[in-house]
């Protein structure tokens, strides 16, 4: 873990070599979700509510998934841009160092400019929380925290799956964007506004639903049935990364036997 922070530090130093570009990109990253959020705002302005969901409730949903996304893009960028590591042949270097490939790939790149995006979603989060009549408890605060961390783990898992595909083909990885960008866009609204199968897909296959929709019901006090179950869903969702990890290991083994 301490090594991860050392990787973080050296790449932060590198990033600071290009300050102007850092600021410009960060500002850009601030405005991308800002425009999406503006769209959401005007939608509610016009229709008032969607399937019983108020504006601030959906804003909370939006904030959680966007925070998770920006954090994962910052800290798991190594897997997100893994194809460049393969193309340049730098993955061989990873293999001759006595550390796990997971840690080294994670430490190979960080995208600090996502701070802009993170800031934007944090503002939305605070704004939404201030305007929602939630009775706070430690459990609810913890749940919110786990929602974001599990979200990061799920996005990281998807990046890992996409990265693993690089061992077979370097091109055609846009497929993964369906799940990262697409998943993010879908999950910024509560899942019950969609068709059943969409909701199911994002609950049981790629469990974005477990990091915002389901636990949000608990935080907002909208649950029917056992509260604990809703509260624990983010933890269940975070298990998504385990099979991704195994698939990654399998990919590494394949790489070492084919060298392609």
């Amino acid at each position: 873990m301490s090594l991860y922070f050392k990787y973080l530090l050296i790449l932060f130093k590198s990033q600071m070599q290009y300050r102007t570009s850092f600021w410009l990109l960060s500002i850009g990253q601030f405005f991308i979700p800002f425009s999406i959020f503006a769209g959401l705002y005007f939608l509610f302005e016009r229709f008032g509510q969607i399937k019983g969901w108020e504006f601030f409730e959906v804003a909370l949903c939006f904030a959680v998934i966007h925070m998770a996304f920006s954090l994962s893009e910052c800290f798991a960028r190594g897997f997100d841009t893994f194809s460049s590591l393969i193309i340049k042949g730098d993955f061989d270097r990873v293999l001759v160092r006595p550390r796990s490939t997971f840690l080294q790939v994670l430490g190979s790149k960080f995208e600090f400019t996502r701070i802009g995006r993170l800031l934007q979603s944090a503002i939305v989060l605070i704004w939404a929380l201030n305007n929602l009549p939630i009775e706070w408890s430690i459990l609810k605060a913890l749940t919110l925290f786990f929602m974001i961390t599990s979200g990061v783990l799920i996005f990281t898992g998807i990046y890992m799956l996409a990265a693993t595909m690089c061992f077979w083909t370097v091109q055609g990885l846009e497929v993964a964007n369906i799940f990262t960008d697409g998943g993010r866009e879908m999950a910024q609204y509560p899942l019950n506004i969609y068709q059943k199968w969409v909701a199911r897909f994002f609950t049981y296959v790629i469990p974005f639903g477990t990091v915002n929709y389901l636990p949000l019901l608990f935080i907002l006090g909208k649950t029917k049935g056992d509260e604990i179950l809703y509260m624990l869903t983010p933890l269940a969702g975070s298990l998504f990364i385990l099979p991704c990890f195994l698939v990654w290991q399998f990919g590494v083994r394949h790489y070492r036997s084919t060298g392609s």
């Binding site: 050296i10 130093k13 160092r97």
Partner: peptide, 17 residues
């Protein structure tokens, strides 16, 4: 590491190994 002083790379390698 391309953008940092050589000594920083050495320090990081020290930690890696």
């Amino acid at each position: 590491w391309w953008d940092v002083p050589v000594i920083d790379s050495f320090e990081l390698l020290k930690d890696i190994y």
